[in-house]
Simulated scan of single mutants.
Amino acid sequence: MLYWFLKYLALGPLLRVIFRPFAEGLENVPRQGPVILAANHLSYSDWLFMPLVMPRRVTFVAKAEYFESPGVKGWLQKKFFGGTGQVPIDRTSGSAAAGALKTQLRLLSEGQVCGIFPEGTRSHDGKLYRGRTGVARLALEAKVPVIPVAVLNTDIIAPPGKVFGRFARPGVKFGRPLDFSRYEGLESDRFILRAITDEIMYEIMNLTGQEYVDLYAQDAKKRDKELAEAAAAEREKAESDEVWDELNE
């Protein structure tokens, strides 16, 4: 009930009026039954705008810490994340990835819609990065279709490192459902998992128009940070050498 309160009576109307989000391809989302929505990840606001344009509840898994903080702030945080369609990762599993998979399998077995960002983390430069194979394993084990999703312009509204950037009209495009039942029983084959994941990312790329980089987003962030630090060090050295030369003229 809290989810629908937030969506239609509180947060939802405010976001609709201010940002006027649009949707394309909603007819590709089944009215009932389990399905996975696999989307690109540009901003922390993606998980707000994607469900906003849908008539069905979309559930994401989130860090358990969001639901376990003490005090009034922790209680409000728990209600907010729970109310906006997020559930805590099952921490009885050996790792966060295993816990997320277990939680999502349970949700899909209940006929729910699960949202997932295959890149694993937000893109820091607007490009689309290599997908993690968890989405493929989830699709095969749950035996459900995957709908590729493009979330647009959220990096303008809330760019990486900022709470708010500038106004833009966010959009969500839903592609045709992808059926991977032909691979049933092969959820432990890493080559099959990679092939499925790459197919999903290809469809997301076609929807978003993003430049695709065959590198994990986390690795790309690390690489770009190291390059920026090296460039800064070179500039600092050049400036220092210039000052030294001036002093010795």
Results as ranks from 00 to 15, higher is better:
208 T>H: 01
133 T>N: 13
92 T>D: 00
188 S>I: 09
65 E>Y: 04
51 P>E: 09
240 S>G: 15
225 K>W: 08
89 I>V: 15
56 R>Y: 01
38 A>L: 04
130 R>E: 13
234 E>P: 14
50 M>Q: 14
23 A>S: 13
232 A>K: 14
165 G>S: 06
166 R>G: 00
28 N>R: 06
163 V>K: 15
142 A>S: 14
50 M>A: 15
180 F>L: 00
19 F>K: 14
60 F>D: 08
49 F>L: 11
9 L>H: 08
46 D>A: 14
162 K>Y: 10
207 L>S: 06
179 D>I: 09
194 R>W: 00
197 T>P: 00
189 D>I: 03
91 R>M: 01
212 Y>S: 01
97 A>T: 09
136 A>W: 08
218 Q>I: 06
91 R>E: 00
243 V>I: 15
116 I>E: 07
18 I>V: 15
41 H>F: 09
83 G>H: 05
119 E>Q: 12
111 G>E: 06
233 A>V: 10
248 N>S: 15
21 P>T: 12
15 L>I: 13
55 P>F: 03
142 A>H: 10
170 P>Q: 14
60 F>C: 07
14 L>N: 02
96 A>K: 06
198 D>E: 04
224 D>C: 04
11 L>P: 04
127 K>G: 01
68 E>F: 11
50 M>N: 08
10 A>G: 08
201 M>D: 00
59 T>Q: 02
16 R>H: 11
207 L>C: 03
26 L>C: 05
80 F>S: 05
109 S>E: 07
218 Q>F: 01
61 V>C: 09
10 A>H: 06
226 E>D: 04
124 H>F: 07
176 R>M: 09
12 G>H: 04
135 V>E: 07
67 F>Y: 08
162 K>H: 14
220 A>L: 00
180 F>G: 03
191 F>N: 14
210 Q>H: 05
191 F>P: 06
71 G>L: 04
13 P>F: 03
244 W>D: 14
177 P>W: 08
226 E>R: 13
8 Y>W: 08
217 A>N: 04
146 V>Y: 09
59 T>I: 12
185 G>N: 00
161 G>S: 12
127 K>W: 01
81 F>P: 03
198 D>H: 02
104 Q>L: 00
225 K>D: 12
164 F>P: 00
154 T>Q: 02
189 D>V: 05
177 P>L: 07
90 D>C: 00
225 K>M: 09
179 D>F: 07
151 V>F: 07
232 A>C: 09
53 V>I: 07
249 E>G: 14
49 F>H: 10
130 R>W: 06
203 E>N: 15
133 T>S: 14
24 E>M: 12
